[in-house]
Amino acid sequence: MPDEPGETPRLDVPAGMFEDIEDLKAQLAALTAEVQALTEGGEPGEAPDDAAAAGGESDDGTDEDEWQYPPFILLLDPPQYDDEMRALIEWVECVLVPGYLAEPSADARWCPEWFEHPVAIARLHALWLAWQELTDPASCGYTGPSVWHRDHLDPALRELRSSHGPFAGCTKNEHQIDHRLPGIVPSAWRGAGP
């Protein structure tokens, strides 16, 4: 029987198509923002600095959350740095180390005192931020974990564990911290707890 006027037609759509559509919407929104930034003379990914954007209002007058960039951990001051480090340490020690780091070797180094290496902290924090975004099916669909492995985990581990990476001076029996910047070790590792 044909559909009657005003009645919503029944559509049989494969379940995965909805995730694909949401991914396309997110990509379109990102490209639109990039084009807008470029046409207004800004840099891609840069938040617009016109009065409406700074006030958090859109063109239709509704309030929107102001765009916030993810924190770069090495630029944070206490207590934000300490909070971010506690969360990063938990993720590295509970997810990354047991799941992805086999026995260290000369070709695949790892330092159990990684938190004393600022370059390692920066790379692992970036890896963790990507993991948070790409393991959430609501924001990236079901291909997010694959993208995280290919685009984030594999390159980060290659750099961290290489013979010229931040753990180059660390061996199984010796930890080399001569290159550590003073005052970077988080208070979380000095016995301060939540």
Score class of each variant (00 low, 15 high):
residue 84 E to M: 06
residue 144 G to M: 00
residue 179 H to W: 13
residue 170 C to W: 06
residue 16 G to K: 08
residue 176 Q to F: 13
residue 176 Q to E: 15
residue 136 D to S: 03
residue 61 G to M: 05
residue 144 G to P: 07
residue 180 R to Y: 03
residue 168 A to W: 00
residue 86 R to Y: 06
residue 68 Q to Y: 03
residue 1 M to A: 12
residue 41 G to T: 05
residue 36 Q to V: 10
residue 47 A to N: 13
residue 171 T to E: 10
residue 34 E to V: 12
residue 132 Q to K: 12
residue 106 A to T: 08
residue 17 M to I: 13
residue 59 D to Y: 14
residue 154 D to H: 07
residue 165 G to E: 04
residue 43 E to G: 07
residue 157 L to M: 13
residue 168 A to G: 01
residue 132 Q to T: 09
residue 90 E to M: 09
residue 65 D to G: 10
residue 45 G to M: 03
residue 149 H to T: 10
residue 188 A to L: 04
residue 79 P to A: 04
residue 94 C to H: 14
residue 118 P to N: 10
residue 93 E to T: 08
residue 101 L to K: 02
residue 125 H to I: 02
residue 103 E to Q: 13
residue 178 D to L: 14
residue 16 G to W: 13
residue 151 D to I: 00
residue 131 W to F: 05
residue 127 L to K: 01
residue 158 R to V: 13
residue 121 I to L: 10
residue 47 A to E: 11
residue 173 N to L: 14
residue 155 P to L: 02
residue 127 L to Y: 01
residue 171 T to A: 03
residue 184 I to N: 07
residue 189 W to T: 15
residue 154 D to K: 13
residue 37 A to T: 08
residue 147 V to C: 04
residue 77 D to Y: 05
residue 17 M to K: 11
residue 125 H to A: 07
residue 29 A to N: 09
residue 89 I to C: 13
residue 92 V to D: 02
residue 101 L to C: 09
residue 91 W to N: 04
residue 117 H to L: 01
residue 62 T to L: 14
residue 28 L to D: 03
residue 145 P to G: 02
residue 91 W to H: 09
residue 149 H to N: 09
residue 50 D to V: 05
residue 85 M to H: 04
residue 46 E to F: 07
residue 98 P to W: 00
residue 5 P to H: 01
residue 171 T to M: 06
residue 154 D to W: 08
residue 89 I to Q: 12
residue 109 R to N: 01
residue 56 G to V: 05
residue 52 A to W: 14
residue 153 L to T: 01
residue 128 W to Y: 11
residue 17 M to Y: 15
residue 153 L to M: 07
residue 20 D to H: 14
residue 193 G to F: 14
residue 51 A to I: 09
residue 188 A to I: 06
residue 59 D to S: 15
residue 9 P to N: 02
residue 163 S to F: 03
residue 135 T to F: 00
residue 108 A to N: 09
residue 6 G to P: 03
residue 166 P to I: 00
residue 71 P to H: 10
residue 175 H to V: 14
residue 1 M to V: 13
residue 25 K to E: 10
residue 90 E to I: 02
residue 120 A to F: 04
residue 70 P to Y: 00
residue 130 A to Q: 06
residue 15 A to C: 11
residue 56 G to W: 02
residue 194 P to N: 06
residue 30 A to S: 09
residue 69 Y to R: 09
residue 69 Y to P: 07
residue 68 Q to N: 08
residue 85 M to V: 12
residue 127 L to S: 09
residue 92 V to N: 04
residue 131 W to M: 01
residue 169 G to T: 07
residue 3 D to W: 08
residue 13 V to P: 05
residue 2 P to Q: 10
residue 26 A to L: 07
residue 50 D to Y: 06
residue 71 P to N: 07
residue 88 L to T: 07
residue 48 P to L: 14
